[in-house]
């Protein structure tokens, strides 16, 4: 069961990390009609985002080994970033919900 759910959960965590990162950028916030953040607020979002991304890398290396873990992290982070980009383009309302949730 853990084997089956492990990668989807890591992918979800990476998605959340990148979502936080996107919601800390002025350009993306303007696109979804949100006001810009102060430098302090940006840091408040970027620190946990960086932590999630780094944590996922360590988790993957621990679970899958150095070679597979690193390659999976690179592949999943690209896929998660693509998902964030496409949602931002076609379903910006999703980000409004996300932004409220993480405020």
């Amino acid at each position: 069961m853990i084997d089956v759910l492990f990668l989807p959960m890591v992918a979800l965590a990476l998605f959340i990390g990148l979502l936080l990162l996107a919601l800390s950028q002025d350009t993306q916030r303007r696109r979804i009609g949100h006001v810009s953040l102060s430098p302090r607020e940006k840091a408040q979002r970027r620190m946990p985002a960086a932590g999630i991304l780094a944590g996922c890398l360590l988790l993957l290396i621990w679970y899958e080994g150095g070679g597979f873990g690193t390659l999976l992290w690179i592949g999943l982070i690209s896929a998660a970033a693509l998902a964030v980009s496409l949602l931002l383009a076609w379903r910006p309302s999703f980000f409004s919900i996300g932004s409220r949730s993480f405020s």
């Binding site: 990148l18 990162l21 996107a22 950028q25 002025d26 350009t27 993306q28 696109r31 970033a81 964030v84 980009s85 496409l86 931002l88 383009a89 076609w90």
Partner: peptide, 12 residues
């Protein structure tokens, strides 16, 4: 120029 700013930018 704005590789990080435009990281998630796709405007169909």
């Amino acid at each position: 120029r704005k590789i990080f700013v435009d990281f998630f930018t796709f405007r169909p």
